[in-house]
Write a protein that binds this DNA or RNA. Structure first.
Lengths: 175, 175
DNA sequence: GCTGGACCTTCCACTAGTGACATGTCATAG
DNA sequence: CTATGACATGTCACTAGTGGAAGGTCCAGC
């Protein structure tokens, strides 16, 4: 149910239309919490009905600008401070590792080295991103830096692990 | 759609009933790919209908023992070797970091240190597990060791990152 | 003037996943 | 003999997420 909170968080910065929100989901949030149009517009309706959002203004082209209400802010704050994030589950990549014994050592090694490459590729993309963005001294962007750093560390860890794991399989093979 | 592959992978080791599979999902796979009963039994039916599984035997209490077919093995192999795992997305924990600016520095720091503690706790649990399990020299358990090591590295990385991030916020605060 | 692209919303059919309930069988300990 | 707990399956109502179709408005440039 975090979609609602993502939307509340976005709208807590400034009011926006569904269209605006979609763009934010596609850019900054896409890697952490993707959402489709149908979901966003649907949730916008639900959140308004339950009083966490309100239609602050109507613009051209039927544009409706949504703003967070006091109740919405309270809910956001509650989510951020009183509830523990559920541990991330479901990793397709890791699931495959469980079944590597159904492959030959050669195939298994190929998979793991492929994983290492994918992780390295993602890391490269993040480094590009880091160079391109001029953070300036916008205090709001601290969060962006934190998440970017997380991505950097995470991809590095995955690459190292995958290379190590590939080595392990080779070693077992040799026994 | 990885549930089907998880089930194929499990059944590639040895035939099992839905009940057996559930136990495996609850124990070894719970952290990587959780599944509910309704999902497992439903998928069992679908996989049988599409010829990837077959009912190998019927036992007492209406027990049906499912076995993987040749087509099933082929599908499993294809999944493991020809398709890239979709990058893991959706981290509730990371989503919150995006919105830390809606909290006071004190609250934000508390959140990050809480994350560090949660990661450390998970790491502790994994270390316990590692000690308790006697891997013996079962070559099948290599995969188990690999995933466990992943968990160890992942939780360590998360703890370090969270502590670092908490420090960053403190530092920004001091400016 | 008209066309293409950005803007903007709504709706629908679908799959995946959750949680709970209903139902029944078999083995064994007391 | 009976109660309990492990074994075993099936079904239903629900929420979350995916993917795409459809329809309409405003603006800028040719």
């Amino acid at each position: 149910m975090s979609l609602r909170h993502a939307m509340l968080g976005l709208l807590a910065n400034r009011p926006a239309s569904g269209y605006d929100l979609m763009k934010r989901f596609e850019t900054s949030l896409s890697s952490v919490w993707p959402a489709t149009q149908s979901q966003v517009y649907g949730e916008l309706g639900k959140l308004t009905k339950s009083g966490l959002l309100e239609v602050a203004a109507e613009g051209p082209r039927g544009r409706k600008e949504y703003a967070i209400t006091e109740a919405g802010r309270a809910e956001l704050h509650h989510w951020l401070t009183e509830s523990d994030p559920p541990p991330a589950r479901r990793s397709d990549a890791l699931l495959r590792v469980f079944f590597l014994n159904h492959l030959t050592p050669l195939e298994a090694t190929a998979y793991l080295l492929g994983e290492a490459d994918r992780a390295a590729g993602q890391r490269g993309a993040l480094e590009e991103l880091e160079k391109k963005i001029d953070w300036g001294d916008d205090p709001l962007s601290v969060n962006g830096r934190l998440t970017l750093e997380y991505g950097l560390r995470f991809t590095a860890m995955r690459e190292e692990w995958a290379r190590w794991a590939a080595g392990e399989i080779g070693a077992t093979d040799g026994k």
